[in-house]
Design a protein around this nucleic acid. Structure first.
Lengths: 222, 222
DNA sequence: AGAAACACTTACAAATATTGAAAGGAAAAA
DNA sequence: TTTTTCCTTTCAATATTTGTAAGTGTTTCT
């Protein structure tokens, strides 16, 4: 289950939060020492941080900023009703959601669930403008549709995406596929390109590979 | 390029927004008739809605709520500084970001870009707890890693995910793979299960398929 | 227009991956 | 221990991917 770090100086509130989260099955950890807190949190590698704004040592905003600069996951800010302005400020500093204290149990859990879903580690896909490509499995995504490319198709398309919007020469592609720099009349490359184009058509990516006569190929558009 | 709908009653402001967006290459459309506006917007199928809060006929909040209930994409709320409270309210109603008027051109464009990126249509992956599966190509994602399953592996895992955390009987799986309801001693199923488990191990998903002796298989908890 | 160079397509076989059958081993229940 | 259920490995059939070959289009140049 997900790990949640609680940053809240009010003891009562803290224990209540702990209780709610643990009963829900979360692995909740409350910070007790409020010095160098961003650093401490970073070592915990939490899936989510519950962050109170009014803290003794340091402002919650400072912490928020610092956590975000470390790439630490979603931050849910807790604050009191009379600090609404501050909350907006919190959004600017990279907090991902906020909640007004005292907060309703269900609302809290709902927000947490929502954030965890949103921040679940995303697969690394490369951006081809109007599609994305998984550079590992060569799964091609367009909108909500997906399609598998063969190894050769995938490697060619990946090269084109990575060089976009530049032209990729046939010798570069030849090198990529067979390790041989020289492009004499590698008909094989041509065949593979035809196949890739045909496959792309299946997912409504017509005319996306442009031929630059004598120079190579280039991926169209944004 | 992306389509943006502008909802703003102040003519000057509207034209300025149009101008900024169009110069940036967006396909901007400004609403002129403020009646039944959510309905109108829905027919435009915009990629993003720029929504002013102070409108003549209807409150921007109503519109926001209504748009969200229709599943209309990201909403960027425009408001004046003295309406900060309202902005928070806007977040509750499902707005995705807000901006204080009068707004800086670059900030506006940055926010828009950010929202468009965030809302770019996501591939449909089913959630297996500690992994996701593309039900179409049977690409398996765990964290930022990915892996291809063979057709049989994929179909079995998909069935397990879809029934999670229930038990899936061998006859169900047999039916799924070969259309034959009866599970006599389909050794083939067993073989495919072994293969699936082996493949899952490659991506650190050990012991995720639990055997319930005499009943079938089940995917282990989240 | 005709020739030459370059780009594209289709059909076929060799190489590669996936699949189910067979046979036997391992673990749990009786 | 015996029986039942589940698991694993090997092997041949099948399906997919790939390069070769042979030819057709298209652009450029004279």
């Amino acid at each position: 289950m997900a790990r949640i770090t609680i940053v809240e100086d009010d003891l009562l509130m803290r224990e209540e939060l702990m209780d709610i989260l643990q009963k829900e099955g979360y692995e909740a950890v409350a910070m007790e020492d409020f010095q160098d807190i961003a650093l401490q949190i970073a070592t915990l590698v939490p899936d989510l941080v519950l962050l109170d704004i009014n803290l003794p040592e340091q402002s919650g905003f400072e912490i928020c900023k610092s956590l975000k600069s470390k790439g630490i996951g979603p931050i849910l800010i807790l604050t009191s009703r009379d600090k609404l302005q501050d909350e907006l400020h919190g959004f600017h500093l990279g907090a991902d959601d906020y909640l007004i204290k005292p907060c309703n149990r269900n609302r809290l859990l709902a927000r947490i669930q929502n954030l965890l879903r949103r921040f679940k580690e995303q697969p690394k896909l490369v951006d081809g403008g109007s599609f994305s490509l998984d550079p590992n499995t060569f799964t091609l995504y367009k909108g909500s549709r997906s399609l598998l490319l063969s190894a050769n198709e995938g490697r060619i398309l990946l090269a084109l995406v990575e060089h976009r919007p530049e032209i990729v020469s046939k010798s570069t592609l030849s090198e990529l596929l067979w390790g041989t720099e020289q492009y004499i009349d590698e008909n094989a490359l041509q065949v593979n390109l035809t196949r890739l184009r045909k496959t792309l058509r299946q997912i409504d990516l017509e005319n996306h590979i442009e031929t630059i006569r004598g120079q190579g190929y280039r991926l169209r558009g944004r």
